[in-house]
Design a protein around this nucleic acid. Sequence first.
DNA 1: GCAAATTTGTTCGTATGTATT
DNA 2: CAATACATACGAACAAATTTG
Lengths: 275, 275
Amino acid sequence: MAQPLYQQIADDLCKRIESGSLGPGQQLPTELELRDTYNASRNTIRDAIKRLMSLGLVETRPGAGTYVTERIDPFVTVLTTPPVIGSPNSDFAIDDSADPEGASYLSMVGKSHRKAACSPVRVEVRPAPKSIASRLRIPSGAPVVARHQERYIDDSPWSVQTTFYPMEFVTSGLAPRLLMADDIPEGTVRYLEDALGCRQVGYRDWITARGPDSSEQQFFGIGHDCVVLELFRTGFDEGGSPMRVTVTVYPADRNQFIVNSGEVPSPSFEQDESI
Amino acid sequence: MAQPLYQQIADDLCKRIESGSLGPGQQLPTELELRDTYNASRNTIRDAIKRLMSLGLVETRPGAGTYVTERIDPFVTVLTTPPVIGSPNSDFAIDDSADPEGASYLSMVGKSHRKAACSPVRVEVRPAPKSIASRLRIPSGAPVVARHQERYIDDSPWSVQTTFYPMEFVTSGLAPRLLMADDIPEGTVRYLEDALGCRQVGYRDWITARGPDSSEQQFFGIGHDCVVLELFRTGFDEGGSPMRVTVTVYPADRNQFIVNSGEVPSPSFEQDESI
DNA sequence: GCAAATTTGTTCGTATGTATT
DNA sequence: CAATACATACGAACAAATTTG
């Protein structure tokens, strides 16, 4: 047995999908039908379908069937401000599009003719997980302020975001609004600059990918075979010290990132036909 | 049954791992032992372990057991050239670290005290897949030159890369070396500039994530529950036309991306302690 | 609106193959 | 070689969600 049977079946179905013989939105034969056509057990068919799901080729709807995925129009997040061609970018603008509180997020999505929405902000004080502590350069477990928000595009859940701030920002009494579960209309970056004199002059994005945990599965309505992108954005002040860390989780099936370097043309016309 | 049994078991094991009661590198109880402790069937235990694998928490070794993953020291790819603090970046350098043929890749990895290696280049002429054709702005299925290479760090497979060039580059007779399965020591970007007068002035990186296909599973030695990051780098010439597309596939368990914007401190000291 | 049929989801049991120790 | 442990595959039963009549 060169390849496991379930893999052979998955490869065959894959070919049938990519060749167009099974088109987007079309229902696959049911598990019982596939069981007969491939002379395999239903469990083996299910293993094959799991493979297709993890490749994002099909989705299953309990009680209804298995369908070739209609590609969701993915939302593209640009992680760099595209420099205007011909102009020097020494005056590099910091377009902090992953800033929570949503102001820039809402306008950014709005520009692409899609409807954006955000949940109310949830605020918490809790011990910093290791990944946050190391980025904020504080001891693991030290208390931090966490501001959490869910985001929607066209009424479907699109990303979840938590921003962590050092506890001193509020214990010093200078930035009390960080603890309020209200929007900070001017944006937290601006607020912290006014309240603390702490200006964010740059940020670093750290991108990883992994499977979703169970709460993410629930919120995004995805199976455990799907994939999420995780973006850690660490903001730095003029002294080069980290002043906040924003963790955003994006389901990979509806989100992509773009990074531009040097002179690149506007991508607008490419977005629709991509993939 | 609020949660499926396999999910409950996965959550419990997850807690035991995150709390440190099961430390990195440590072997989990065998499937048969877990079957007894949780009073579930072996299949259910296996479903739970699959969840942990997709979260990257454990890895299974046939015949040996299931082990809590020792975090691989991830290799971090910086997608932007970090601007030197204090200097204007109007003279933005295009550090094309994802260039194939490996010259810059080898030196970049070498700098981090790790051993880099590349497979020989494999060259092919084949019809452009849709995702490539749309980026090169050519019809889907039109022939393209594909140069393929595998990359290793510290002797383990790290990424696979294929670069696609428009067929005219060779049919015009101007850049015949694109078809040779040899290294192009000065780098293809430089070679194309000399041969065609076609200078790459910028590139766009397009980042997505998905499950691995079967050849990727084999090459990287990962299960289908793991995740790969896929980076499409489109290089543009002075006229704003795409001149090449490089697709690089990175297993997410050993690769991360960084994007810097504005002024950020050097990340060197953070790399070791991250995550 | 309701009941039946259909379809996927979960769980069990069992057997055999393959890789490692 | 033998024992151990995970991988694959089969069959069966019931639950849960959806569609259909």
